[in-house]
Measured scan of single mutants.
Amino acid sequence: SKDAAQYVYDEAQKGVTQVTVNGVTFKFDNWQKLLKYAQKLLN
């Protein structure tokens, strides 16, 4: 959902490398990768 994507995006902006959405945890090597993933979700 857009809300989940926005949440992931906001978390990535904080510099975190993992985020949990609806009980599913996504882990990334660095926050830039998390940010890229979030941007994909938002598009």
Rank of each mutant, 00 (worst) to 15 (best):
F26L: 08
K14P: 09
Q6M: 03
E11S: 04
Q39M: 13
T20K: 02
K27T: 08
G15W: 14
Y7A: 14
G23W: 14
D10V: 13
Q13K: 08
Q13I: 12
E11P: 11
K33E: 06
D3G: 04
V24I: 05
F26G: 01
N30K: 06
V16W: 12
G15N: 10
Q13A: 10
N30F: 15
A5Y: 06
L41I: 05
K27W: 14
Q13S: 08
E11M: 10
F28H: 02
D3P: 08
S1K: 11
T20A: 08
T20C: 14
K14S: 09
F26Q: 03
W31L: 07
V16S: 07
G23I: 15
K14G: 12
Y37F: 12
Y9W: 15
D29N: 12
V8E: 13
Q32N: 04
K40T: 04
W31G: 00
F28C: 14
L34Y: 02
Y9H: 10
L42H: 01
Y7P: 15
G23Y: 14
T17W: 14
V8C: 15
F26R: 05
T25R: 08
K33N: 05
L34Q: 00
Q32D: 03
A5C: 15
K33Y: 07
N22K: 09
T20F: 07
T20E: 06
K2M: 11
A5R: 03
N43H: 04
V21M: 10
A38L: 13
Y37H: 02
L35S: 00
D3Y: 03
K33L: 07
D3S: 03
E11I: 13
A5T: 03
T20D: 03
D3F: 11
V19W: 14
T17E: 04
K2H: 07
Q39F: 12
Q13V: 11
V16I: 05
V19N: 01
Y7T: 14
A4V: 03
Y37I: 07
K14M: 10
E11L: 13
K2C: 15
D29H: 13
D3I: 13
Y37E: 01
W31P: 00
V16N: 07
N22P: 11
Q18D: 03
V16M: 04
D10K: 05
K2D: 12
T25L: 11
L35T: 00
Q18M: 07
A4G: 04
Y9P: 14
K36V: 07
D10E: 11
N30H: 10
V19H: 06
N30Q: 09
F26H: 03
Y37C: 10
Y37G: 00
G15P: 04
N43E: 06
T25Q: 04
D29F: 15
V19M: 12
G15C: 15
F28I: 10
L35K: 01
W31A: 00
K27V: 15
V8G: 09
K2S: 08
Q32F: 13
E11N: 07
K33G: 02
N43K: 13
N43F: 10
V8F: 09
L41H: 01
V8L: 11
A38G: 01
Y9S: 12
T25H: 08
Q6A: 05
T17I: 12
A4T: 03
K40D: 02
V24W: 14
D3A: 02
D29P: 13
A12K: 04
L42F: 07
K33A: 07
F26E: 02
D3L: 07
L35R: 02
D10T: 11
F26I: 06
K14N: 11
N30R: 09
E11D: 12
T17D: 07
V21P: 10
V21N: 05
W31I: 07
K36D: 03
Q6I: 06
K36C: 12
A4I: 05
L35H: 01
K36L: 07
Q32S: 04
L34D: 00
L42W: 08
S1G: 11
Y9M: 09
L34M: 02
V21E: 11
L41K: 01
N30I: 15
Q18H: 08
K14W: 13
V8D: 14
N43P: 01
F26Y: 07
G15R: 04
L42M: 02
T20P: 06
Y9V: 08
L41Y: 02
V19E: 01
V8S: 07
L35A: 00
Q13F: 13
S1T: 10
Y7E: 14
Y9Q: 11
L35C: 14
V16R: 07
V24Y: 11
K36E: 06
L35D: 00
K2W: 14
G23C: 12
E11Q: 12
Q32R: 07
F28M: 06
V24Q: 07
